[in-house]
Design a binder for these strands. Structure first.
Length: 425
DNA sequence: TCTGGGGTCCTAGGACCC
DNA sequence: TCTGGGGTCCTAGGACCC
């Protein structure tokens, strides 16, 4: 059996842990640049605040009901996430926990008997809530897809289920499949949902009746086959052991549109530094760097919302590297090639790929390698980690940073900065 | 008029996820 | 006026090889 453990309104929950007076109040958290709403407390949902909607559209509703609003505080959420996952690892053993996202993890429960799994789920839930202050919902079933489905059911009526749903036998599975619309299945997005609806396949139960060959032809090939197997209780999606990322990206909207090449270069340089840090954290090096910019031009007529075209260029490096300045140099060239005078830019980003372990770098025969890079990087990473963000940075990244994103409502980083600790009088 | 067969690797783009 | 960021996997099609 698998469990999926999912934190309820995770970002809002993190804010509330340190501001107990918000416990019963509606709370929302905004995306970077204060653009969209990405987390809502139950109270905010009840008021009709939509998910992933633009903040400016929801603002009247938010002000009318005195909803508490926060900019996202990823230092805080990342650290709280680690604490939650650590509880699971302590209880279930670290090899049985697969962190799926910042607020979700799958746990392999094979070590427990069928009649024990609910009890284990309760132990997860109670311990996490007691140790971190974050509430979770749990779904338990024979496959990951069914566990996700169970989790959905546990959330439909939190009081009745106690936020835990277990599908331990065929009868319960059948019942659950019949009340779940296909569009709510894990792995069915907008496109597939539309297709299925046209074929009058409405519930998860309907979909489970379809032959695998049909899925191979009409539902995304092997992806569809896997989904149907999972619904039948056949494990088709297994535990992923920890894997290095195959792609590392740092991309941001600008606070305000940017027009000058120097601002673009500063931003791209900053994102490159950040991406290189992520690269070094997993002891990897990258061999391809891709830089892109998005302009302010009018998007397609009638599009859901307008964003301008993306211009991108990449460069394949002569040998993989994780040294920031070796990445900034090509990044700057790419930025210069992309830049067009007179355009307004609203976003830029850097994507590193062609990722290999940094201990097996195939050296370039024709290039002299500077071994100082690695040592220097370690020192810079250490200083930036222990002091504050970017105590040490490359001049190319700029000092003023006029292009920086908006983040007007961020709470203190209570758990990762000494000078921002919660004070208790 | 008529131009093989079998394979690998890479990239771009689609779909999906949180 | 104002709409996020960071990933994964898969497929199709092109380039290339013998």
């Amino acid at each position: 059996m698998y469990a999926i453990v999912d934190c309820n309104s995770f970002y809002c929950a993190c804010e509330r842990v340190f501001k107990p007076h918000l416990a019963e109040k509606p709370v929302v958290v905004l995306s970077n640049n204060d653009g969209c709403i990405i987390s809502r407390s139950d109270e905010a949902k009840a008021l009709g605040v939509g998910m992933a909607g633009p903040y400016f559209l929801a603002k009247p509703l938010i002000e009318k009901h005195d909803v508490e609003v926060f900019s996202s505080n990823y230092n805080l959420y990342g650290n709280m996430s680690w604490r939650v996952m650590e509880v699971l690892r302590i209880i279930a053993g670290k090899n049985n926990v697969e962190v799926y996202s910042v607020d979700e993890a799958f746990v392999n429960l094979n070590g427990f008997g069928c009649n024990q799994v609910r009890e284990v789920g309760e132990r997860f839930k109670n311990t996490i809530e007691q140790w971190t202050g974050v509430n979770v919902s749990i779904g338990i079933a024979p496959t990951k897809t069914l566990a996700k489905l169970a989790n959905g059911i546990s959330k439909m009526n939190k009081i009745k289920t106690g936020c835990i749903a277990v599908l331990e036998n065929e009868e319960k599975i059948m019942k659950a499949l019949k009340i779940t619309p296909v569009k709510d299945l894990w792995g069915v997005g907008g496109q597939s949902a539309k297709k299925l609806l046209n074929l009058n396949i409405l519930t998860a139960w309907d979909l489970r009746q379809m032959p695998e060959e049909w899925a191979r032809k009409n539902l995304g090939g092997v992806v569809g086959v896997r989904l149907i197997k999972e619904l039948r209780g056949e494990k088709a999606i297994v535990m992923n052991e920890f894997k290095d990322k195959k792609m590392i990206a740092t991309t941001r909207m600008f606070g305000d549109a940017v027009t000058s090449l120097s601002d673009i270069k500063e931003a791209v340089s900053t994102y490159t530094s950040r991406a290189a840090e992520k690269l070094r954290r997993q002891y990897s090096a990258a061999s391809t760097i891709n830089v892109f910019v998005v302009t302010n031009e009018k998007g397609e007529e009638g599009a859901h919302f307008k964003h301008g075209p993306t211009y991108s260029r990449h460069k394949i490096l002569s040998s993989p590297t994780a040294v920031t300045n070796e990445l900034i140099k090509p990044a700057m060239q790419l930025a210069e090639q992309l830049y067009q005078e007179g355009k307004k830019y609203k976003k830029a980003g850097v994507i590193l790929s062609g990722i290999v372990p940094d201990n097996s770098i195939q050296a370039d025969l024709f290039e002299e390698r500077k071994s100082i890079g690695r040592f220097l990087m370690e020192q810079i990473d250490n200083i930036n980690f222990s002091m504050r963000d970017d105590s040490v940075k490359y001049v190319a990244s700029g000092l003023k940073r006029d292009w920086k994103m908006r983040q007007e409502l961020r709470s203190p980083r209570y758990t990762t900065r000494w000078d921002e600790l919660r004070e208790v009088k």
